[in-house]
Structure formats: structure tokens, C-alpha cells
Design a protein around this nucleic acid. Structure first.
Length: 257
DNA sequence: ATGTCGGATCATATCCGA
């Protein structure tokens, strides 16, 4: 089956673009982030016309996560326990034998900002939640926009950004704590030495200059038996039919459970 | 440092967050 994650940066503005990608890549399950809409504004009918049902945890204007699937996903968890005031950033759904979690981790803004410490606390809550639900012992994908560069290779400018947001020891420790629960960064395992980014700032011609970061991940539990292919879908960071892309590329993997 | 987006608002311009 093909599973994917994508921060779409506003689903209402991105819907036509997303439909082009769904038709082209034919994923079975898609975790979406940054919907920027309330549940009752989710475009269910249009996505069902494309062959996808959805579990949705939305919010007005900001955040918002969903799981799309060919068969109706069963909602398992809507929101990260104890972190509701930080917005709608977690949704877990069951699709057949696979448990899929869509995450939009806090940005943190910069290391002196109060949001930075809140970001670290949010990651602690996430680790606690994944452990309490024994997520790594199921066939599970935990995926989304983590807003962390796990290693130097994941940044276009590790030397210049050392200690800055997305590049701190504290964020990297938070990310490693997730992996230590029994998850694997499936892209990095498949491509250990490849520098590839999943996000490029809209500003300053970042995509053209390839000044990007790899911050979108598919984490697999040991129940994910095999990854046949995994790609960061850079083609869809480009305009399609004159439509504006998200600032994130989709990431997809063909897996067996 | 910040050239672009998406969304909200006492809207047709300005802000916030990313």
C-alpha cells in the first residue's frame, strides 16, 4: 500500500492542487497537515468524488490535521491529550490493519520565544501518548510535519543554523526520544546519505536555490515489514497547471505490513 | 535578512504565523 504525508498549507486554497496529486500518485492513505479550516468546512464531497474518505480534526484559520483513505478511516484519537490549547495538531485513525497518526508539530518560532519551550513540552506529551497507547507495537505510521531537522544532512545550512530553531540539541533529542519508542525514519533508513529536503520557504527563491529542510517524515513501527520505495515528491513543490504549491512537498512510501 | 504565501478582519489594506 502507498502511504503519504503532506503539509498542504491551507486545504481550501490547495484543493485543486491536491486533487491533481491524488490522481497522479494514487496513494491509499494520506496524512494531511495545516488544513486551516474547521471540521464543517472540510471538502468531504469533493474528496469522496476522488475516492477518498476522511477523518478530520480541524480548527479555524490555523493547524488542522486529517487522514484520507480509500476505505473509511476509524477515528482513534482526535487531539494530543493535555495539549489542546496549542491547537489541532494530532489525529490517529485506523485504516484496515494500519494505525496512522497525522502530526503537525509546533514550530517554536525561535529559541528565545516562549513557544520554543512549549514545543519541547509538546514533544514530551507526544512521546508519553505514543508510549501509553503502545503505538510502536502495532503496525503503525506516525507521520507529518515535525518542524525539526534530525541531523545536519537534513538542513541546507547546518553550519550557519547550528543552535537555531529546527537545529537545536533539544529538538533533536525530542525527535530521538520518539524513535527510541520503536519507530524508524523510513526515508533516512532507505537513503542514508542522500540530502533531500521536504520544505522550502516561499520567500527569497528558496526552492530555486534549494535552500530547504527535511522536516516531514514517515515514521514506521516494527509492524511495517518492508518499504519498497519512498520518495519526497519534489515535483509537486512546483506549480501544477498554474496552481500555487504548498511550501512542503508530499512524502510517500510503498510499504507492506 | 526576509523578496511569499493563507487566512482573518470593523476588508478592498493590514495584521499574523509560517
Amino acid at each position: 500500500m502507498r502511504v503519504a504525508t503532506w503539509n498542504v498549507n491551507g486545504l481550501r486554497s490547495r484543493l485543486d492542487f491536491v486533487k491533481i496529486w491524488l490522481r497522479e500518485r494514487q496513494p491509499d492513505v494520506v496524512a494531511l497537515q495545516e488544513l486551516k479550516l474547521e471540521d464543517d468546512r472540510f471538502p468531504r464531497a469533493e474528496l469522496e468524488a476522488e475516492g477518498y474518505f476522511a477523518a478530520v480534526h480541524g480548527q479555524k484559520a490555523w493547524n488542522g490535521v486529517a487522514v484520507l483513505a480509500r476505505e473509511k478511516p476509524d477515528m482513534v484519537q482526535s487531539g494530543l491529550p493535555g495539549e489542546a490549547e496549542f491547537g489541532s495538531r494530532l489525529l490517529t485513525a485506523r485504516v484496515g490493519g494500519l494505525t496512522v497518526t497525522s502530526l503537525y508539530c509546533p514550530n517554536g518560532k525561535h529559541v528565545e520565544h516562549e513557544d520554543f519551550q512549549r514545543k519541547l513540552a509538546w514533544f514530551e506529551s507526544l512521546s508519553d501518548h505514543l508510549e501509553a497507547t503502545s503505538m510502536s507495537t502495532h503496525p503503525a505510521i506516525v507521520c507529518g510535519d515535525f518542524n525539526v531537522c534530525p541531523q545536519g544532512i537534513d538542513s541546507w545550512n547546518e553550519a550557519g543554523k547550528a543552535g537555531k530553531i529546527f537545529h537545536t540539541r533539544e529538538e533533536r533529542r525530542s525527535f530521538q526520544n520518539l524513535l527510541a519508542l520503536g519507530f524508524i525514519d523510513l526515508y533516512r533508513r532507505q537513503h542514508p546519505d542522500r540530502q533531500a529536503f521536504s520544505w522550502w520557504d516561499y520567500r527569497a527563491g528558496s526552492f530555486h536555490r534549494n535552500t530547504g529542510l527535511r522536516i516531514d517524515f514517515l515514521l514506521g513501527s516494527s509492524g511495517v515489514a518492508e518499504v519498497r520505495e519512498i520518495e519526497i515528491d519534489r515535483e509537486f513543490r512546483k506549480k501544477q497547471d498554474g496552481l500555487t504549491p504548498s511550501d512542503h512537498a508530499p512524502v510517500w512510501a510503498d510499504i507492506q505490513i
